[in-house]
Amino acid sequence: MDSYTTKIRELSANLLKDEKVDFIIGFKQGTIPMAASPHIAKTSEQAEQFIWDNNCRINLANYLTSRKEKIGIIAKGCDCRNIVTHIIENKIKREQLHIIGVPCNGMIDKIKVSSLFDEEITGYSETDEVITIKTLSDEKNINKTEVLKSNCMTCTHRNPVIYDELVADLVEEQQIEDQFSDVRLIEEMTADEKWNHFDNLLKNCIRCYACRNACPLCYCPTCFVDESGPQWVGKGQDPTDIRTFHYLRAYHCAGRCTDCGACVEACPMDINVRDFTRKLNKDSLEIYGWEAGLTLEQRPPLDTFTPDDPNDFIK
C-alpha cells in the first residue's frame, strides 16, 4: 500500500499548497501495531504524516458533520457512501468537499488476527497480499484474504462512489452471491433462539457508546440515550436498557447504514454490533431495492412516500 501512501501525501500536499482546502482528513500511523488514527493536516508538512494500510478501518465521514470549512478527505468506498448520505441529509455540501478517493481491497480484522496469537502483537508490516505479524517470540506471515473484516468480505462497493481525484486505478468489485447469509441464519431462528442470540451478543456491553460515537450516522446534537428530560431509556447496566439502546440506535440507521463496520471497529468488547444493522440493510434492499449512499439524485426510501410502498403488514 506504499504507492497509496505516496500518492495520498502528494495529492494532499498539493491541495494544501494551492490553498484549495482548509484541511485534509486522513489517517496517520497509530501508537500501537495494527492501528491507524485519524489525522487532520492543515499544512503540507503535516500531510507527510498521512498513511494508507490495511488498518484504516474507521469511517472518516464522521468528522464532516456540520463543518463549514472547505475540506479535503481521504475516502474509501464505504466512507464515500457515508459522505453521500451526509450530503443528502444536509450535513455538508458537495462544494465544500474535495474527495480523494481510495479504491479499497478490504481491511483486515484486528480481532481475527490477534486470535491467532497467544502473545501481544508487537509489530506489523504488509505487502500487497501478505501481512507480517510479530510478537515477542514469534513472527508469522498471513494471507490478507484469510483475515479480512467480515463486512469487507461481503462488500460490493469497494470503489469510491463520488470523488474528485483517485489515488489509484479503480479495483474490480466483488460478485457476492449471498450477501446476507448471516442475517438469514438469525431470521430462521425461533423467537426464543433469537432472544438468546442477542442476549449472548450483548452480554459484554459496557455502554461506553463507542459504537455510536464512531458511527457517521449518529450525529444528533443530543442522542436519545443522553437525554434526561424526558429520560427515554435507563442509564445503568440493566439488560433491558442495554437492548433498548442497541435496538433504537440500529433503527435510527435504517436505510442509512453503509455497513462500514466502524461500530464493530470501535467496540472495546469485540461485540459484532453489525448484527443489528445488517437485518435493516437486507430489508432496505429487498423491500425498496435501496442501498444507502450510492447516489445524490434519489431520496432514501424512509423519507419519501409512494403509493406503491409495500404495506401488507397493515391489517
Partner: peptide, 9 residues
C-alpha cells in the same frame, strides 16, 4: 430480536 411476532400488530 426475539419478541414473538404474535405481539406486534
Amino acid at each position: 430480536m426475539g419478541i414473538e411476532k404474535e405481539r406486534l400488530h
